[in-house]
């Protein structure tokens, strides 16, 4: 657990970056610091490993005051990932990953073995081990950056805009893999981003900062989307928070109709019962493929999106084997969404 106690940071020019911050980052969870630029989120992150020294207050990592430790020793025990990865261009990939074990004086053989294992863990072929960072794409470099932060198996990781320098497709991939990795490793993670979507996707807890280094709200992504504390958070979370809030609601309780005709179209299945296309006079051109399906484990956001994009405004539910087992026309979905807000 990481605890901020009355942390204040005033820079020599008088700017107060962080003012009386009290915050707890639970062990084994991802806490996202999000907010507009200049809100003190990065400064707060960097105070955890003393890259920035607080003016007053205490920061405890698992009960120990970071200000009482030797900064270099403290930092070797805290993983650090930055934007653009920040890999050392003069060192090979495997040597980059082994940076902290090298500082800790581990043997060359031991370092290399551990680094190789980590490369595989972050989804990089070990053939990359002896390349230089400039021979890798941005996304690959960022994976190496994550592997480097994990090399000494620190309990705590700090990530400063780790995925913002790569294109959206790669970013999405890295985010998914990061979540998978975290589900295996259970690190205590503080992650800074300016992107509320990333915060919602990655955070177990989100701390919304506002200019001047104040906390506007701390809560789960769902709490933030459904019950923003004030206008600032409401604006920051964005206008489509109602739609995005559906990500947290399960499609399990959604009523479905049996397979049959919908709006002048019929669902065509293949031999094993998987949906193929819509056919009938209700479909423009007579036929249109089924482009997506959902299962009972998916979110209402996906169902809504499927219904909106379907040629016959109907989402198709499938079972675990991919066989169609129900239909949700968009008016049923609207009724369901309205009903869940109605007073009992």
């Amino acid at each position: 657990m990481i605890t901020f106690e009355h942390i204040r940071k005033q820079f020599p020019d008088g700017t107060v970056a962080v003012d009386d911050l009290d915050l707890e980052l639970p062990s084994g969870k991802i806490t996202v610091f999000v907010g507009p630029s200049g809100c003190g989120k990065t400064t707060s992150l960097r105070m955890i490993n003393r890259m920035v020294e607080p003016t007053s207050g205490r920061i405890l990592v698992d009960g120990e005051d970071v200000l009482e430790k030797d900064p270099a020793v403290l930092r070797r025990g805290i993983g650090y990932v930055i934007q653009h990865a920040g890999l050392f261009p003069h060192r090979t990939v495997v040597d980059n990953v082994a940076t902290v074990p090298h500082l800790l004086g581990r043997s060359k053989k031991e370092r290399r073995a551990a680094a190789m294992e980590l490369l595989e863990r972050v989804g990089l072929p070990t053939a990359f081990a002896d390349r230089y960072p400039s021979q890798l794409s941005g996304g690959q470099q960022q994976r190496v950056g994550v592997a480097r932060a994990l090399a000494a198996d620190p309990p705590v990781m700090l990530m400063d805009e780790p995925f913002s320098a790569v294109d959206p497709v790669v970013r999405d991939q890295l985010q998914q893999e990061f979540l998978r990795l975290q589900s295996e490793l259970g690190k205590t993670i503080a992650l800074v981003t300016h992107d509320i979507d990333e915060a919602v996707k990655l955070g177990d807890t989100i701390a919304v900062f506002r200019a001047g280094g104040h906390l506007a709200q701390v809560g789960t992504p769902q709490e933030l989307l459904e019950r923003p504390a004030d206008d600032f958070v409401r604006d920051f979370v964005g206008r489509d928070r109602g739609f995005r809030g559906l990500s947290f609601e399960s499609a399990a309780s959604l009523p479905v109709r049996p397979l049959g005709e919908v709006g002048g179209a019929r669902l065509v299945l293949d031999d094993s019962g998987r949906p193929v296309c819509w056919e009938g006079p209700g479909v423009r051109g007579g036929s249109a493929p089924v482009e997506g399906t959902f299962t009972a484990h998916d979110s209402l956001r996906l169902v809504t999106d499927l219904a909106l994009s379907s040629p016959v405004a109907t989402a198709v539910r499938v079972d675990g084997a991919g066989r169609a087992d129900g239909l949700v026309p968009h008016h049923d979905l609207v009724d369901h969404l309205a009903a869940r807000r109605a007073p009992a």
Binding site: R75, G86, P89, L103
Partner: peptide, 25 residues
């Protein structure tokens, strides 16, 4: 500068950082 910062944040002290990161670069 982001590289020397990254080195510091990994736990490099000044002299070793100079010899192993800054001078080679």
């Amino acid at each position: 500068a982001s590289l020397t910062e990254a080195a510091t944040a990994m736990g490099y002290r000044r002299t070793r950082r100079l010899l192993e990161v800054e001078l080679p670069l």
